[in-house]
């Protein structure tokens, strides 16, 4: 018999896989099931849900006021009143685009809470409980494993940002006369989707990378929130201190707002002035994602090899 050494406890699968792909699916489904098992954390979705209702109503009211109808049935008929004219003007002042920007800006923190809560333990707890040994004893590639963890997280995050955005856009589409919102402002929908995806990819990648580095879920949670808070505080503080807005590039949320401003072509988001290079912002965000995925692959490789 030929002598051999086996320094790796769990060796990566090196055989030929059957044609069937999407091996991440069962893992993703079980991750999702695990996440939904506890009911109390679902409360994290309450703020985006409430905000969706409010913003949707404002969008509906815009078109109702523009049309000269009363947005609140059962109260005074706005059509006959002098207020109708004022209403029409008010309707013109409300822009769906602004509402969507405002919604995203207001919900950023809650989306981070959702992503951090559900994402912090995904890899850290696997490593702590040695569950990864079970996964990597099967023909599961590192990418499969990471997709099985990442995609459910993106889905959970999407429930706080993309889905509400789609609801608001749908309300706008249905409430607008002759589908004018779709025909005249159709690009707003695409921009909303684009922004949501960018925001989700950045946040989920960072949180998952932190989870892969931490020993416990609670630590990953603290570091995730701490990092976003520290970088946010640092960025805005330095921008103010040295009167150089480019320091906001340090802040992940600052970068996301700059992207939002760039996509929707506005100068301000709430009280936040987006007055630094958009190209640099894209570069920084891409850097975050790249670093996060390098960390993820490195840590997953270590899990795979060292057990």
């Amino acid at each position: 018999m030929k002598a051999s050494t086996h320094t790796e406890i769990y060796r990566p699968f090196r055989g030929t896989l059957a044609a069937r792909r999407s091996r991440w699916k069962p893992l993703a489904l079980s991750t999702l099931r695990g996440a939904l098992r506890k009911k109390l954390p679902l409360l994290l979705f309450a703020p985006p849900a409430i905000a969706t209702v409010i913003f949707s109503f404002v969008v509906y009211a815009k078109f109702a006021l523009e049309a000269g109808t009363n947005p609140l049935p059962g109260t005074e008929d706005g059509r006959a009143s002098p207020m109708a004219a004022v209403g029409g003007m008010a309707g013109n002042l409300i822009e769906v685009r602004t509402q969507i920007i405002g919604f995203h800006a207001a919900m950023d923190f809650f989306v981070l809470l959702i992503v951090a809560w559900y994402g912090s333990g995904l890899i850290a707890e696997d490593a702590r409980r040695k569950a990864h040994l079970l996964y990597f004893a099967r023909p599961l590639t590192r990418l499969d494993y990471l997709l099985g963890k990442w995609l459910p997280l993106v889905l959970m995050g999407a429930c706080g940002t993309l889905l509400p955005g789609l609801v608001i856009c749908s309300v706008a589409a249905f409430a607008s006369p002759n589908w004018s919102f779709v025909t005249q402002e159709g690009d707003t929908i695409l921009k909303m989707i684009a922004y949501s995806l960018v925001s989700l990819v950045v946040q989920t990648s960072i949180v998952l990378a932190i989870s892969s580095l931490a020993q416990r879920k609670t630590h990953a949670l603290a570091v995730s929130l701490g990092c976003f808070a520290l970088l946010g505080g640092l960025g805005s503080m330095l921008a103010r201190l040295v009167h150089e807005p480019a320091w906001n590039l340090l802040s992940v949320f600052g970068c996301l707002r700059r992207v939002s401003a760039g996509l929707f072509d506005v100068q301000r988001i709430l009280h936040f002035r987006a007055n630094w290079s958009l190209a640099a912002t894209w570069f920084v965000l891409a850097g975050w994602v790249l670093v996060a995925w390098v960390v993820l692959f490195w840590r997953t490789r270590r899990l795979e090899q060292n057990g």
Binding site: A229, L230, M237, R240
Partner: peptide
């Protein structure tokens, strides 16, 4: 600035 915005409020 650093001790106020970062150290005391976050760290």
């Amino acid at each position: 600035h650093l001790s106020w915005f970062l150290f005391l409020q976050v760290v």
